[in-house]
């Protein structure tokens, strides 16, 4: 397999795992805008253990997930009291604090970054992504998944139905944080080098958008969202240079003929985010759509004439 394709599969797998981590929080009604923070915790935990204690990769991957998960649970309890804007801000602030702490910790390389031994090939993150996807699909079929979705829809009624809001939210947020951490650990071992700047606020925003645009009603959403936006730049390699010249001229600049950078990908992500929120805020993949595609849906007699 060519290195190019191997690189794409590795980053795709890492993004899918990351997206599932954020999905678990969002599906239970918690907008987690601190994804990069949890990914950084996982990446640095795995990297540090690997570089300093020489632990085998299997253990450092696990450790990355566990440490990020514990941090997630520790954060989930106090922020349970916050909702809406406050929750978004709290998770966002958490990620900034993590990045700041890493930058100021010499043992983690500070601003210099950190080399991570124990290289893993693309197959390993890919297997990881498949396992994580199966896990999340399974979780969504359980009563735990049902209560998560119920809390997303109506927290007060879920409580009256006997759902322990606290337990479900903390568990969903914590497992999600662990998955984000796992994606960071895979990243560390696949790229072999990590730096705090690689886990900035934009990363948190991108992954949340992958999840929301893919759709949060089913486990298919994050998979489709992450895959689409990871593969998009590959699709657009040919189209973009021309578009770039138009925009540069429009803004009063002089086209220099250089190849467009990845900024373009994010312009498109932004446009899609705005368009989806205006037209189809539930995201691309909805439950109804999955039911239709899976041919399980029967039409109920007498249902057609009676709508509100």
């Amino acid at each position: 397999m060519s290195g190019y394709l191997a690189g794409i599969i590795a980053i795709l797998s890492i993004n899918v795992i990351f997206a599932y981590g954020i999905f678990l929080a969002v599906a239970s009604g918690q907008l987690n805008l601190g994804g990069a923070g949890f990914q950084a915790v996982g990446a640095y935990a795995a990297g540090w253990l690997s570089a300093n204690l020489g632990l085998p990769v299997a253990l450092t991957l696990l450790a990355g997930a566990v440490v990020a998960g514990l941090v997630g649970v520790a954060l989930a309890f106090p922020i349970l009291r916050t909702r809406g804007v406050y929750l978004v801000l709290a998770t966002f602030a958490f990620a900034e604090v993590v990045a700041g702490l890493i930058l100021n910790t010499d043992a983690l390389g500070g601003a210099m970054g950190m080399s991570v031994p124990g290289y893993v090939e693309w197959q390993v993150p890919m297997i990881g992504a498949v396992v994580v996807a199966l896990l999340v699909f399974y979780l969504m079929t359980t009563r735990f998944g049902l209560t998560m979705r119920a809390i997303h829809d109506d927290e007060d009624v879920s409580d009256l139905m006997g759902v322990s809001i606290r337990n479900v939210k903390v568990a969903a947020f914590g497992v999600g944080a662990a998955l984000a951490g796992l994606s960071g650990a895979f990243y560390a071992h696949n790229f072999g080098y990590i730096e705090a700047q690689g886990f900035n606020a934009m990363v948190s925003i991108y992954v949340l958008l992958y999840v929301l645009l893919g759709g949060t009603q089913t486990a298919w959403g994050p998979l489709v969202g992450a895959a689409f936006f990871t593969l998009l730049p590959e699709i657009l390699r040919e189209v973009l240079p021309a578009a770039k010249e138009v925009v540069v001229t429009l803004f009063g600049g002089v086209p220099d003929g250089s190849r467009p950078d990845e900024s373009w990908r994010f312009v498109i992500l932004g446009v899609l985010a705005v368009a989806f929120m205006a037209i189809r805020p539930e995201g691309l993949i909805t439950r109804t759509m999955v039911e239709r595609l899976s041919f399980r849906r029967r039409t109920a007699p007498g249902m057609k004439e009676a709508t509100e």
Binding site: V26, G29, Q30, L31, G84, V85, V88, H152, D153, D154, E155, I205, L208, L209, L212, T216, V247, F251, S263, W264, F266, V267, L269, G270, V271, L272, A273, V274, M277, A278, P281
Partner: peptide
């Protein structure tokens, strides 16, 4: 009135942030 629906303007504004900043 569910929880992600209330976040629609916020998510839209994140989209605009990406558009303007990257342009």
């Amino acid at each position: 009135g569910d929880s992600t629906e209330h976040a629609i303007p916020l998510v839209s504004s994140l989209g605009f942030l990406l558009i303007v900043e990257n342009l």
